[in-house]
Design a protein around this nucleic acid. Sequence first.
DNA 1: ACAGTCGTCTACCATTTGGTAGAGAAAGCT
DNA 2: AGCTTTCTCTACCAAATGGTAGACGACTGT
Lengths: 196, 196
Amino acid sequence: MKTPTRDRILDAATNLFGTRGVDAVSLDVIATEVGVAKQTLLYWFPSKDDLVQAVLVAAAHELSVMIDAAVRAANDDPLDRIEAVIRAVFRPAVRRPALLGLVREVSRLPTATADRLSADLSPLVDRAVAFLQHEMDEGRLRRADPRLVASLCYATVTGIATEPEALRVVGWQPSAAGLRQLRGELLAFLRAALAP
Amino acid sequence: MKTPTRDRILDAATNLFGTRGVDAVSLDVIATEVGVAKQTLLYWFPSKDDLVQAVLVAAAHELSVMIDAAVRAANDDPLDRIEAVIRAVFRPAVRRPALLGLVREVSRLPTATADRLSADLSPLVDRAVAFLQHEMDEGRLRRADPRLVASLCYATVTGIATEPEALRVVGWQPSAAGLRQLRGELLAFLRAALAP
DNA sequence: ACAGTCGTCTACCATTTGGTAGAGAAAGCT
DNA sequence: AGCTTTCTCTACCAAATGGTAGACGACTGT
């Protein structure tokens, strides 16, 4: 219990907001989860909106760092590079769907908030799009609109990672083996979709 | 104003639940939207939960009918058939993101509710999986786990249709031409992902 | 030793939420 | 006509929500 209260609040709020939705999670619920009085939340984050902002910024940062590291460590082949990013994102995403779920929440938030997060993530996005464009020009990826391809990859990964229901309906179970298989199919799917 | 009150309530609730989330939409908001007193809602649907159920059932039915018709009208080539389904779903999905957004809401709902919807949609899913399996056996689709491929296709289409934010970040605009282009890229993406 | 500030708490408050009770208009049935 | 059913409404209510005010203890620096 030595992690600072503020961090524990952020962590709990991230999970709850990401899985149940911002509007559906009350400050009381978060406080109870953290094991603290509601007013302690309001001490660290003067309003719910401030908390939401902080959670989004932290999540965007966490994702950025994760993806950045993966890209830096990967080799030159574009498909391998994409695979590296997915491997990096996949584990935390499935184990903590809230992280990507949060990104998804953004479309429901007031535009101002959404814009801020967009701005936070846009360097990442721009780099990805430029990368796709370059590899397409070199003939190492199927030629297409790189912006939309980026969105489609994002939609596929986020969708599959945040919607256990869609997988449950087809009888998939979240075991360790199931996870490996899912990741394998996801990678094969994207490789096929992107290969020249 | 001649459409029955009950239908107008269902319609408004579908849109609001699908775009903002079930928990975030109050009965008052729906009532105001419909232009009726809250108690009129509670007359037609004894509780909010009943309303949610009804909305889900109606949405599942609407989707089923739409997809069914598309499948029936399509020719035999599996990729063409898949394209037909996507074309059928795409227009209403982008114009009324609530429809697919609702399906996505399910993962946040109590398990009992989710199970009911799963049951409603499972014939559709089973048929799709069987179809994929058969076409893979015939060598007309890339060989893979048909259940996971179905989920991946679903994630891609739903993700791209319900997340205008993801598209805005890459600078896409929802014009008529933009929509056509988006659909084109989506189809090319899936064709590439599924082709043998 | 002591003033201050930091972190957490209890006690409230106004508003909103899902829901109940029941009145009243309109229309059909006898 | 009278009676019942169908539909919509106004008037409430208890619980939960986001947020304010301020007390209390524990630790600082002087």
